[in-house]
């Protein structure tokens, strides 16, 4: 695959369509030579980013799409997931299972933590409608670390 190759997918704001982005990301990562376990990490991170965009960014609005842009650069794959929300105002919290079990924390709320944990870089950018995005990066050299 040529360096600088880019693929764009637009998803309806409906849960389940994140699997289209997962498959696309997995296919692109496989072409770049990522290992199976890194591809699984990426699939989960991309799925969670798309779910956040569908649910919190676009609030399930069927008039809005979620944009997913995948770009290969040297030995890294960058994925931007773009929605029409205002972005996230806080950094991802680490879920605390003890607090969840005691009812002090909601059982949900693990998506951003998983994204951050499973890729090499995760950044949330706030912006006007259509400009808020999360940027994920995985690097090939991570396989040997």
């Amino acid at each position: 695959m040529k360096n600088g190759s880019s693929v764009e997918v637009r998803l309806p704001s409906e849960l389940g369509f994140e699997k289209i982005a997962m498959s696309t990301a997995a296919g692109m990562a496989a072409l770049m030579g990522f290992s199976e376990d890194r591809i699984e990490d990426l699939k989960t991170a991309v799925a969670e980013a798309c779910i956040n965009a569908i649910e919190h960014g676009n609030k399930f609005d069927d008039q809005l799409d979620v944009g997913v842009v995948l770009s290969s650069n040297d030995d890294e794959l960058e994925i931007k997931v773009i929605d029409d929300g205002g972005g996230f105002r806080s950094t991802p919290a680490t879920p605390n299972i003890d607090r969840k079990m005691s009812g002090e924390e909601e059982p949900r709320g693990m998506g951003m933590f998983l994204i951050q944990s499973l890729v090499d870089e995760a950044e949330w950018h706030n912006g006007p409608p259509g400009k808020s995005f999360v940027r994920l990066v995985i690097r090939l050299d991570k396989e040997n670390s």
């Binding site: 989960t44 299972i97 079990m101 909601e106 059982p107 949900r108 693990m110 998506g111």
Partner: peptide
């Protein structure tokens, strides 16, 4: 075939009920 964080939260809900 597919599990996401909302699905894991359901399993946690089950564990909370059991606790």
């Amino acid at each position: 075939d597919y599990i996401n964080s909302s699905g894991i939260a359901i399993i946690i809900q089950m564990l909370i009920e059991e606790r």
